[in-house]
Nucleic acid binder design. Structure first.
Lengths: 216, 216
DNA sequence: CGCGCGCCCTTGTGATCACATAGCGCCCAT
DNA sequence: ATGGGCGCTATGTGATCACAAGGGCGCGCG
């Protein structure tokens, strides 16, 4: 017997729920590169029919988060070194611009929030929580970029993150982390100083650093 | 009675056909900004069921080519001036990089092809063919960027074109064109000279010029 | 014991249907 | 004449089914 939905709860469609959950899993590296998925499997996991599963998958394929074999099988991306370099270059281009646009609007409260997120990152390092590390690291960047008031650029950056997601965890394994990324400190001090050139350099460095581990 | 498909023809799924056609119509400005579409209408137009129509629309929504109202109605984008500025900035960032990467690989044959496309653009100006103008203008850029061997960047650029599509025709109306964009000449001479700084400037100017007409 | 072939079953595609809802127009009352 | 309310219909969502094709596994042959 169906129970009435509490009227305050925003009705979120089934495919939206499937989409959001899969998207987060991919972006935060909870799926391995090249991992195969099936529509019926996804549908069963979320206890919905194939239709919403198909829509969610289509959407993720369109965003480059999943790839479609010629016969229609879906799997997460396996990136070539060239593709990784390209995506890192895109991150660099767009994120430097976003940071630059956020700078004039970055007040103390924002910098405090970023500081707090940086501490969360430390926790994930101590707990060796790869997925949590990726999530809070991206949260650091997203919090800053949100201030740029540039939704299209932010969306584009997030689709790049999405494409890098499964591969990023592989990176985490090779990384001997002892704390938050070193360049986050530089980003914070450049923000405090209102120093745009330093900020651009710090963001570019932060975005590009991980790349080296992946391409060799 | 069904006729056997010629075996050489690549079997392209129904939703792919719908997707490609709609995508081209949007990118080349054949649909007005804010134009409403219905799944059943699209399905009828292409003589398919609602399923492929839904998938094609979902895909285009994911790429930002179409927007979904809260109740799920789909329509093309109506861009605010701020959004247009943002998209132009994205074009500038990515296309300058693509041009820069294409430069070392740009041989005579490529420059000849670009020249030929430029002539096609002249034809569309004479014929006052707005959609053809947009199509061949983008073809000019795509042909150059293809040489950059950077598929992810090119794909990202194309989704920006897609978002600007319906609005670009509005631009065309305000433009008193007498020939190909002036900056195309600069792009070509920079390519011939192998002059990267000039090329970057020319591409940025070409991409940004139209913007001014749209934001005031 | 290894390799290749064929068959079955898994999997994606497209059509159709039932249902809920939002938007729109029409009608009536003031 | 105009504004508001009501009801119909157009429209999106999700489920289910039929079908075709591709991949993987096992069997049989060398």
């Amino acid at each position: 017997m169906l129970v009435a939905r509490p009227k305050t709860e925003p009705v979120t469609s089934a495919h939206e729920r499937v989409y959001r959950t899969l998207r987060a899993r991919i972006m935060y590296g909870e799926l391995d590169p090249g991992q195969a998925l099936t529509l019926r499997g996804i549908a069963a996991d979320f206890d919905v029919s194939m239709t919403p599963a198909r829509e969610a998958v289509r959407r993720l394929v369109a965003e480059g988060a999943l790839s479609l074999s010629s016969s229609g099988r879906v799997s997460t991306l396996e990136l070539t070194p060239e593709r990784i370099e390209e995506l890192a270059a895109l991150r660099s281009l767009i994120e430097v611009e976003l940071a630059s646009r956020a700078l004039p609007r970055a007040h103390f409260a924002l910098i405090d929030r970023l500081q707090a997120i940086n501490n969360t990152i430390s926790d994930t390092v101590i707990r060796k929580d790869a997925s949590g590390y990726i999530r809070s690291n991206l949260e650091f960047h997203r919090t800053l970029y949100l201030r740029a008031q540039a939704p299209a650029m932010l969306a584009m950056t997030e689709t790049v993150w999405l494409q890098l997601g499964p591969t990023m965890r592989a990176l985490y394994g090779r990384l001997k982390r002892t704390g938050p990324p070193q360049y986050h400190r530089l980003i914070l001090s450049a923000l405090r100083a209102g120093d745009e050139p330093s900020l651009r350099l710090a963001v570019r460095s932060d975005v590009t650093q991980g790349l080296r581990l992946l391409t060799n």
